[in-house]
């Protein structure tokens, strides 16, 4: 399936074409399940998230027309955002900090190791230009759904400090990516 085929399936899904929706599921569910698992780290939770993600895709497929993302990026963004919303909704504040402390340093995650070149290579190269703990915070937020409060607790800094760190890091990151 080319990106164009996937776009076509999303557009047909927005017209409530069930055959297209079924095919879209077959072609993309493994990718989106991988994303839900990566963020949520719990199979049962990821299965429920994937259900909700495809319900959302069915009901909001018309939004794809106004997005500037590639079809796969659009689908992945729905899945990742939904998984993060789920993390925000599920955690009691106390459990939340414990869980954040348990998470291993994501900088050493498989993505960082697996990536060789291209776009993926660039983002990791640009992350490497940041201070190490700030790059870890960016990855922790994007890939593990950690909030400012989680990250502040894990790095042992006040929440406002973390906010300042990350905002500066994001702007530096963009500056590097657009270079």
């Amino acid at each position: 399936m080319t990106p164009r085929d996937i776009s076509n399936l999303i557009v047909r899904t927005s017209m409530k074409d069930r055959a297209a929706f079924d095919l879209l599921y077959r072609q993309t569910s493994a990718k989106l399940f991988g994303v839900c698992l990566r963020v949520l780290k719990d199979r049962g939770d990821a299965e429920e998230a994937l259900q909700e993600v495809f319900v959302k895709i069915w009901t909001k497929a018309d939004r794809f027309a106004v997005s500037e993302l590639s079809p796969i990026s659009w689908l992945v963004a729905i899945a990742r955002n939904h998984a993060i919303d789920r993390i925000r909704a599920r955690r009691e504040p106390a459990a939340y900090i414990d869980a954040a402390l348990d998470v291993a340093d994501p900088a050493a995650g498989p993505e960082a190791a697996a990536v060789a070149g291209g776009e993926s290579g660039r983002i990791h190269h640009c992350l490497d230009e940041l201070e190490k703990d700030r790059a870890a915070a960016v990855r922790g937020a994007y890939l593990d759904g950690e909030s400012y409060a989680d990250l502040a607790a894990r790095h042992g800094v006040p929440l406002n400090t973390m906010r300042t760190w990350l905002r500066r890091s994001l702007l530096k990151l963009r500056e590097c990516l657009e270079r």
Partner: peptide, 9 residues
């Protein structure tokens, strides 16, 4: 900008 971070998932 950021989506390549999760592309290798």
């Amino acid at each position: 900008h950021l989506s390549p971070m999760i592309a290798a998932c």
